[in-house]
């Protein structure tokens, strides 16, 4: 499945929710089920800076594709980052860099995109794209 197809799938899932409570319950569920990052990545180098919740994101290249893992000490944050991982993990760095991730707007998570929400989606996306960029740079 392409990045876009995975994103469309998430949009379709969120369209089923009648209200905010269903949406947040789903994020909480995702937060509880996200694969936990290996202990070696739970340190300052993989931490996304911010003052609310802590988020760690790791990236490893396997057969030309980027495997992303993440963790957070807050459950909702973990649910949000798990959506990103689902869409972007196991993809080529060039594809990760080329996607605008418009689906986040469509599922009504704009509040997490506000620049004031430290540790919000914006910083997570930036970090993932940095990993992809670094990998691309190494290829050249």
């Amino acid at each position: 499945m392409s990045i876009q197809e995975k994103a469309n799938e998430i949009v379709a899932e969120f369209a089923l929710f009648d209200d905010w409570m269903d949406k947040y319950n789903y994020l909480i569920e995702l937060g509880h089920s996200t694969p936990i990052i290996e202990e070696k990545y739970r340190n300052e180098s993989y931490l996304i800076n911010g003052c609310q919740s802590r988020v760690w994101i790791s990236a490893e290249m396997v057969d030309g594709k980027m495997i992303l893992k993440a963790d957070s000490d807050a459950v909702i944050t973990k649910g949000v980052v798990s959506l990103l991982i689902r869409v972007l993990s196991n993809e080529k760095p060039e594809d990760i860099l080329g996607n605008e991730l418009g689906f986040l707007d469509q599922i009504g998570l704009q509040e997490h995109l506000s620049p004031t929400r430290a540790n919000g989606l914006r910083a997570m996306i930036q970090q993932i794209k940095l990993y992809a960029m670094a990998s691309e740079a190494r290829k050249k």
Partner: peptide, 10 residues
């Protein structure tokens, strides 16, 4: 058992 950020969001 609940992170302040999670509680604040709800």
């Amino acid at each position: 058992g609940i992170h302040p950020y999670d509680a604040g969001t709800i």
